[in-house]
Design a protein around this nucleic acid. Structure first.
Lengths: 409, 409
DNA sequence: GCACTTAATTCGCGTCGCGTTGTAATTGCG
DNA sequence: CGCAATTACAACGCGACGCGAATTAAGTGC
């Protein structure tokens, strides 16, 4: 455990203040004090230091206290957008999405490269990422050395600390250090994160999880991702591993075990319909599910059934998550949601049927259709979160290793 | 978030020191300093305060530095066993287990009441618990007013803060406040906790999780319990709800959905063999699984298959937990383990088959056959942990409520 | 008996958060 | 226009904390 000293105390409160300014935008010192339950004195001291460091700036307008604004007007504080810039990226099998954001997470430039990186060698992917980053940074009118951090997100199992990709649908080889490959090319601090964790941060900072420090997020795309926010922090497993949902086995019999990803991933839904070249092309373009929806509406019964089956499996999986994590909220995101009610109807039914009675009112299910850019922005948020100096140190080297063994008493 | 002030800082370090003394027994101030990474000064100050409060005591022996012990001898510090006493209890369907422990968790007296409380009204159960507590306290040579806290553990979904039992195989009625019922009778601080959380704490304090601040525990008894330790703290869900494993749905099709508890609970294994009165009696006595093992060895093929099926389902469920939580360790406990390899063989096979390759070496699986008393002791440990003044406040009122709803963008 | 070694305490310093006091910047009203 | 009222913020002093250095305590070895 981290030992508590005055330095940590200050780090915590400083982060708390900075985070409050981020969340509530232009905000006065008094209000920060109210929200953080810190004294005006302390807030003044911390904000002075933040101003000194150039992380925030003052604005002498926007004081919107109701009615007669008597007394000395409040000085509003905002993040200094120019305090830092980061690049966030989403690496998916058929596209790369980049965005450059400023210190408060505003997108300065974004770029989508519709390239199929699926199963390419790591070095090639890294080259593509390098190009994308360079170009997106240029689009934002910046130079590479003005970028503090690059955060990459991709599906799979990622070791956050080391930036190692344990496995990913995108990479042929397991256990590649994407972080190293990028640092070698760009010489910028690089974070590698699971895409589910990235979109989890995005929902927490910009989306449907803004008001909530504890929720579970299910990302339904080509892969099925899981992000867990606990106490405002991403939940990480051993060695800071990211979590996965697609590997959840649906079935009790090992002989007939079937993974959720084989039921509810986009490929699973499309299986059997590969022949249709319109769908194939649409998938290449990342529009697969919208296209599938169209086909269902035109009467493709096979796809309709596949979508419903995926929804059922997801509904059950989500009920399982509620039983296992008891989260106050579950947020659903991902391109597969484009199927709309063809997916969601059966999802709702299956969830309602699967959720045990006493857990019925525990979790609020929220469905959020988000843009690709938000995923990249989420990766940027991960990077910014660390720049803000989160005092709990989510970063760091992997911890002691453990080997599997069946040891008995 | 909790705001950081000097008081919190001191609370954290004080807890850290106290916890170190608990974990390592007789320990000198120097060593505490090394382990906590606190300065000798700070350790001295904190230990002085702990001595002053009577929580620890000194011992001028046991300095076992290797070889020539030169210099001023170390004064060893230990918990003061008499600083507090608590009662821990395990409430199971066919027995009540109580233990009185001192401040360091040593069992002063224990008591097993082989009564079937299954489906009895709450008030009756509370009466039985009252009797058990009173008698066990008397057995320990203590008076009731010397007991600081009573901690009850039982299977089901428990709201830790309020002491409300949302649902339990034991209670007929849902949503009963067991805490209130007990406080009314004993007028002692009462904690109600899921039995899985209790045994999780027991493993962390006394068992196979001593060296580990992060692990997942699966309790396989009549009910299937789940405990998650994260950063040395019990993971709690919304409203401080306990987690459940038995409600995990094994299957992708809502029509054929089957809960893990219907495959791997003791009742599920015994199903179809109810006719055998020897088994029925054995179950009454809480020896069900040992008896079942005997029957299997005598050639009961039906039971052998049921056990294997349960093992398979559990192996899959555990693989799912590893994917979802990525814990460095999974500890298996519970009376069903008495089936031995009739359960574990298929469990191992199913786990190995279900666990995705990249997660193979993440979690160490540990099987621990524990006594009933340890469960009760775990409940006591939950109580003691709060007495130690864990600064993160696991106790407290339930937080804001949330209703289920499907809201979309 | 004296040097040596190590443990534990004491002392002084710097930092933190907080309450109080003082100052700055505005409105309201005569 | 001027002055009181009001409100935001900064400055000062207090007490608590943790830490490093110096000091005291309590042994061993010769």
């Amino acid at each position: 455990m981290k030992t508590a000293d005055p330095e940590l105390m200050r780090a915590i409160n400083r982060f708390h203040v900075l985070d409050t300014i981020r969340r509530f935008g232009a905000i006065s010192r008094v209000e920060i004090g109210e929200r953080t339950v810190l004294s005006a004195t302390t807030v003044s001291a911390i904000t002075a230091s933040l101003l000194d460091d150039g992380l925030i700036s003052t604005r002498h307008e926007g004081d919107l206290r109701g009615g007669g604004a008597r007394g000395r007007p409040r000085v509003m504080l905002t993040l200094n957008p120019e305090a830092a810039r980061v690049v966030g990226a989403k690496i998916a099998s058929n596209r790369l999405v980049f965005c450059v954001t400023n210190f408060q997470g505003d997108v300065l430039a974004s770029l989508t490269l519709p390239v199929r990186v699926d199963r390419l060698p790591v070095e090639v992917i890294a080259d593509l990422v390098e190009d994308g980053v360079r170009r997106c940074v240029m689009d934002a009118g910046l130079a590479l050395n003005e970028i503090k951090t690059v955060a990459l997100s991709l599906p799979g199992i990622i070791e956050h600390g080391t930036g190692r990709v344990r496995s990913s649908a995108i990479f042929r080889d397991p256990n590649v250090s994407l972080k190293e490959a990028i640092v070698k090319r760009l010489d910028i601090d690089t974070i590698v994160e699971s895409d589910a964790n990235a979109i989890t941060m995005a929902e927490h900072w910009f989306g449907r999880g803004r008001d909530c420090d504890d929720f579970v997020l299910v990302a339904i795309e080509e892969s099925l991702g899981l992000g867990v926010l606990h106490g405002g922090q991403l939940f990480r497993g051993a060695r800071e591993l990211s979590l996965t949902l697609g590997d959840m086995i649906m079935g009790s019999d090992p002989e007939h075990a079937i993974k959720l990803s084989e039921l509810a991933s986009e490929r699973a839904i499309l299986d059997g319909d590969h022949g249709d070249s319109r769908v194939r092309d649409a998938i290449r373009l990342g529009q697969g599910m919208g296209r599938v929806r169209g086909l269902i509406e035109e009467g493709d019964n096979e796809l309709r059934i596949a979508a419903a089956r995926a929804g059922s499996a997801l509904g059950i999986a989500i009920a399982n998550l509620v039983a296992l994590f008891a989260p106050p909220r579950v947020i659903l995101v991902g391109s597969t949601l484009a199927l709309g009610d063809y997916l969601l109807d059966s999802l709702r039914v299956a969830f309602a049927k699967a959720i045990p009675d006493p857990l019925k009112n525990v979790a609020q299910i929220v469905i959020d259709e988000v843009s690709d850019e938000l995923w990249a922005r989420g990766a940027a948020a991960v990077a910014l979160g660390e720049l803000y100096g989160s005092p709990w140190g989510t970063t760091g080297p992997a911890r002691r290793s453990t080997a599997i063994e069946f040891s008995e008493k």
